[in-house]
Nucleic acid binder design. Structure first.
Length: 317
DNA sequence: CTAAAGTTTACAGTTACTTCA
DNA sequence: ACTGAAGTAACTGTAAACTTT
């Protein structure tokens, strides 16, 4: 599966996006910071695009991983509950009888030309549009009540059957995907509108968004995992290298006679920027050491390079 | 004003079904 | 035709936020 991802500007912080949701929307970009806070709630309210393996590879060399994510929209929680309606259940029930594929239908959606109520070239189409008119009317009458009645209703209250799984059509999936890009959570109105538009139950839309969020999160976790793995590998390699270097330096120190014959090395450190410059002279180590002992006050000792302080031309960074 | 009860939503985990190699 | 893996729609249980009583 080919997934789209663009790595954004690492300099853009997460809070930047949170503070400027509109800007995010314009840019259609989102920063996913791979830090300790990336699991925080604020980030969970955001949209995330999926990730390519190429991006995963890049993640290892570009520490600040930024997924090109989508803008979030604040969830409108708990609108004023509408008055209840006792016969509403029946309206949804009757709709579902017509909108769902017949029980036990195992045909290929593509071959059959219809995989779901909205697929177009369907034998249900006529009936569907009639039902839809009825639905629109009922919707107008009981817009939010319908959602409440159908919400969390399992399939056993439809036709008395156990759940059967409908495959969403490509069009429906694409539309839901587009909606998800705009906002990964839905308020009741958006949910209803989407359901109406796609000829799905609001519950189906709700479930689709829940599953979609779960998939996004899973993908993100995989990317995070990959990135951390690469970080670990890099650090292990670095550690190995430094250990080796240390070992070599220790070996040098123990082999004093040999070391004494080496050309003397003078390390010059700039006190302001603390940069170290190395100069190697052709004089013997003994004489250089003696000379430097007076300037550095380190007492010489004849082991190791000598350190002196002198200003370099560079400004401290 | 406060507490309890009720409602709604999101999420994690799971199940069941479909598709495909 | 059969089978196992992968993908995903749908479900359950739980917690949190919020509203109503």
């Amino acid at each position: 599966m080919e997934l789209a991802l663009s790595l954004g500007d690492a300099s853009r912080s997460l809070t930047n996006f949170i503070d400027k949701p509109q800007k995010i929307k314009d840019n259609m970009g989102f920063c996913m910071g791979l830090g300790a806070s990336f699991k925080e709630k604020s980030q969970e309210k955001t949209q995330q695009q999926e990730i390519t393996s190429e991006d995963v590879r890049r993640a290892s060399s570009d520490p600040p991983v930024q997924l090109d994510l989508l803008p979030f929209s604040p969830v409108q929680r708990h609108p004023p509950p509408p008055p209840s309606s006792s016969n509403l259940r029946f309206s949804w029930l009757s709709e579902n009888l017509n909108l769902c594929e017949p029980a036990g239908s195992n045909r290929n959606p593509e071959e059959a030309g219809v995989s779901s109520p909205n697929s177009g070239v369907s034998s249900f189409q006529m009936e569907l549009s009639m039902q839809r008119n009825k639905r629109d009317f009922e919707m107008a009458m009981n817009e939010v009540e319908g959602e409440r009645a159908s919400s969390r209703a399992s399939d056993d209250d439809e036709n008395g059957l156990t759940r059967k799984k409908l495959r969403l059509s490509k069009e429906q999936s694409a539309f839901l995907e587009e909606s998800f890009k705009e906002h990964n959570t839905l308020n009741p109105k958006q949910k209803l509108a989407l359901a109406k538009q796609l000829n799905l139950r609001p519950r189906q839309v709700e479930v689709w968004f829940q599953n979609r969020r779960a998939r996004t999160k899973l993908k993100q976790t995989e990317v995070d995992c990959e990135y951390l793995k690469r970080c670990c590998e890099t650090l292990t390699e670095e550690n190995r290298r430094l250990q080796k270097e240390l070992q070599e330096l220790r070996a040098l120190k123990t082999c004093q006679p040999f070391y004494m014959q080496l050309p003397a090395t003078t390390l010059t450190m700039c006190p302001s920027c603390e940069r170290v410059a190395t100069t190697t002279t052709t004089t013997t180590a003994a004489t250089t050491t003696a000379a430097n002992a007076t300037t550095t006050g380190n007492g010489g000792g004849g082991s190791g390079p000598n350190l002196s302080l002198s200003n370099c031309s560079k400004q401290p960074s």
